[in-house]
Simulated scan of single mutants.
Amino acid sequence: MTRIFCNYGDRNQKNEYILNKSQSYGDAPTKVRKTDHYKKEYIQSFVEKWDELIDWEARQKGEGKFFLTELKKRNKHKILDVATGTGYHSVALMKNGFEVRSADGSPEMLAKAFENGKNAGQILTTIQADWRWLNRDVHSRFDAAICLGNSFTHLFSENDRRKALAEFYSALKHDGILIIDHRNYDAILDNQDFTTKHTYYYAGDNVKAAPEHVDNGLARFRYEFPDESVYHLNMFPLREQYVRKLLKEVGFQKITTYGDFQETHKTDKPDFFIHIAEKSYNQ
């Protein structure tokens, strides 16, 4: 391990953290099912390759103006990106005039996001925060919160998921919205021959992202890169209706679900589901 110091955005303090040189899953990788383990997964070498996996240009073509359109038509301007990762959505929103705060639990991701923002001509305001105690570190109220890139699947216990959603809910203004996405785990769990189109997410050239092990409590994904390096992520397989149920029970009044950016997805199995949950009460 290497001990290093980083300074993120407008935070006038240096954060000391341990930089792992390799992912650590122990002797039984499929037994690792704890929320806090993401800290050992997003090691520096994996983070440095993340944009190779995502491919910002390909992702922009796939998403189009979906998020911009949905936020603008609801008059949402002040946005909290709770899982900024390497900053793709934060940068895209800022370039289109939105006021954005960029949060993530991984200091490595925040450092990369800030670097990407500078390279794109944007200075990100970054916040290192655990979702379960989000409002301890985030003190403003927002028109919208976004939790994208399959990030919510890093929470392995129902208590953690409910606590995080409650924190998202609290961070929103009275008429705020939450936009949250996740892989189509229904298709992965129910179809042994599942394949992904890689049209919208993980669209990098010659990068492979596929499930290595799947059961009702774990989806372990393997990521292979052109230089033959291999990384893994252990995630909880969220079913579409389960997420909708949680959002309702936390207090969101109306949930609209899209499949690969289309509200109607009955005739094809999407790679991803996107939920737009509205906080305001609708009679």
Rank of each mutant, 00 (worst) to 15 (best):
N150F: 03
G85F: 05
H265W: 12
T199C: 07
D215R: 03
E278Y: 05
W50Q: 13
A277Y: 07
T35H: 09
Q262Y: 14
P226R: 10
K78W: 05
N20M: 08
G26I: 10
T196R: 14
G97H: 13
C6E: 10
S102T: 05
K14C: 12
F142P: 05
T2Q: 14
P211F: 05
T267M: 11
L80Y: 07
E158F: 10
D268T: 10
G64I: 01
Y8K: 06
V207W: 00
V100W: 07
A83L: 02
N159H: 07
R141C: 01
L172P: 01
E278A: 11
D143G: 06
E63T: 01
W133Y: 14
Q128T: 08
L246Q: 11
I180H: 01
L165R: 05
V207P: 01
L155T: 06
K78M: 06
R141Y: 09
N234C: 04
L246S: 07
Y17Q: 00
A113L: 11
K34T: 15
L165S: 06
A92C: 14
F156A: 08
K65E: 14
G121K: 03
I18Y: 12
N234D: 15
E108F: 11
F273M: 03
M1Y: 12
L80F: 11
Y223F: 15
I179P: 01
N150S: 11
K245P: 04
D51H: 09
K208C: 03
G85Q: 04
I146E: 02
E249M: 04
T30L: 09
L80M: 02
R220V: 09
